[in-house]
Structure formats: C-alpha cells, structure tokens
C-alpha cells in the first residue's frame, strides 16, 4: 500500500476565514481568508516575517489561532472533537522550514516515522521504502543510514520532504521546500511537488520566495502582506497581477 507513494490520493479542501493571530501586541495574521480545492496546488508568497509559517502552523493545529475558522474537508480544526481533528491531521504531511528531522534517529527511520508511528517494526520493509523515497528526492541509498547531523542542510531539507510525503498524505504543506538548494536540485523538488498534485491528486500548500519554483508548482498563488491575503489568482496572472505589491515582489524591485 505504501510501496512507492504513487497511488491516487483523494486530496482535501481547505477553507480559512477571518484567521487572526497575535503574539503579545504584535499582530501577525490579521484576518486571513484563503481556500484550496482538492487536488489543487496553492502557493503562498510574501516577505520574510509576514507570518507564512505561522499560518501553516495554525492550519495544522500546532498553534491555536486567536479567532477565525479553519475547515479541512469541512472539519472545523479549531472546534471539532479531538478525534476528528486527529483523523484529519493523520491525512496531512508537513515539511518544516528548518527540516525538524529527529536527530536521535538515522535518516531512514526519520523518513518512515509516520508509517510506524515511531515504533521499530518491519525494519527491512521500512528501510526499503525509505530508500525509494530518497531516490525520489534525488538522494543516494548511502544517506539512509546516516544521522541528520552528518548530512548537509540541503540534504536535510530533502530528507524532511521525503518524510513529509512518505505516508501518502492527502494534504501536504511545504514551508520553503527549495530554500538552500542549488537550481538543479530545486528543479527536481519543484517537479516532485507538481507531480504530487497534478499527478496523483494530493492538495498542496507551498510557501516559497522562489518565483521560478512558484511558476512550476502553483495552480494558484496568494500573497500574504501585513497579515492579510492582498492578492490571489491563477499562476499565469502572476506576472501581470495589476497589484503593485505583487509586482514588486515578483520582480524583486525595492520600493
């Protein structure tokens, strides 16, 4: 069932309305409205520190929002019974901006963690699955037995990506998947993410600063600025969005 992560997924819908989150008196999210349909690839762009990572953590329930609703496949992720929320979360995968690999475990146990829920079982099969996942993110089998501390930052990122998708999630969050990778590796990852959505039907929500990457990955792009989504539209309108802030960001112009 989990052989190579290629079977058809059913995707998931996301519906976010009026999401607010502050830390002390610092307002980070100030009424975010955003949605994605099953199988869609949504890319979120925006300057550093605008709350993109906070947004993902709120959606996943890792951080409680102050107000607002988050529906994933119509389950209210802030109010539904815990078991329902956990059921939804079990269908999600997440690549953290910093990787967040478990440094006490080797690479292949990291990758298959969600499949065993951290238990040491079916080791032979798990290692084989991990090696197949490694190949997908462009890493050799040799890496499987190393510890996260023994590989480079870019390799860690790719291992973390393999870990996020190993359990065949319907809904996948990628926080800056290509940051720290060279253009060739980045391209592999872009197409991998593209294939997870168009190819096999998962829903993806990706944060990136990399416009090349956005153009390959996205069906739709949304820009977060000062706590709100100030523009969203199909990726082919990104170049001529008519929004000066989006233009600045896309073309890398200073104000």
């Amino acid at each position: 069932m989990v052989e190579d992560g290629q079977q058809r997924r059913k995707g998931a819908s996301i519906e976010i309305a009026g999401l607010r989150k502050s830390f002390g008196d610092k307002i980070v999210l100030d009424g975010v409205n955003l949605g994605a349909t099953p199988g869609e690839s949504l890319v979120i762009i925006g300057g550093s520190g605008t709350g993109k990572s906070v947004l993902l953590k709120c959606i996943l329930g890792l951080m409680p929002p102050d107000t607002g609703t988050i529906l994933i496949d119509d389950v209210d992720m802030t109010n539904a019974p815990r078991s329902e929320r956990e059921e939804v979360r079990d269908r999600c995968g997440m690549l953290f901006q910093g990787g967040a690999l478990f440094d006490s475990m080797n690479v292949w146990r990291n990758i298959t963690f969600a499949l065993t829920r951290g238990r040491q079982r079916k080791s032979k099969e798990m290692r084989r699955i991990a090696v197949a996942m490694l190949e997908k993110v462009g890493l050799e089998e040799r890496v499987a037995d190393l510890r996260p501390a023994e590989i480079s930052g870019g390799m860690q990122k790719r291992v973390a990506l393999a870990r996020a998708i190993a359990a065949n999630p319907d809904l996948i969050f990628f926080d800056e998947p290509t940051t720290g990778l060279d253009p060739i590796r980045a391209n592999t990852i872009n197409h991998l993410i593209r294939n997870l959505t168009t190819g096999i039907g998962a829903t993806a929500l990706t944060i990136t600063h990399d416009m090349e990457s956005a153009k390959i990955i996205a069906d739709r792009v949304a820009m977060l600025h000062e706590g709100r989504i100030i523009w969203s539209g199909p990726v082919d309108q990104l170049e001529n969005s008519g929004n000066p802030l989006v233009d600045q960001f896309v073309h890398g112009r200073a104000k």
Binding site: K57, L60, G61, L62, R89, D90, C92, G93, M94, F96, G98, A100, L101, F102, D103, F113, A114, R117, G118, R163, A164, A167
Partner: peptide, 21 residues
C-alpha cells in the same frame, strides 16, 4: 532542543503523540 527545532511539532504531524512517545 526538540521544541525549539520544531521536532515536537513534527512528531504531531507524523501521527505521533509527544506525550506517548
């Protein structure tokens, strides 16, 4: 260290309860 490097958050996204694990 696991908290500040988001490993505890990662556990939750990998179907694992940090209290159990």
């Amino acid at each position: 260290t696991m908290r500040v490097t988001e490993q505890i958050d990662a556990l939750k996204t990998l179907r694992t309860d940090p209290f159990q694990f």
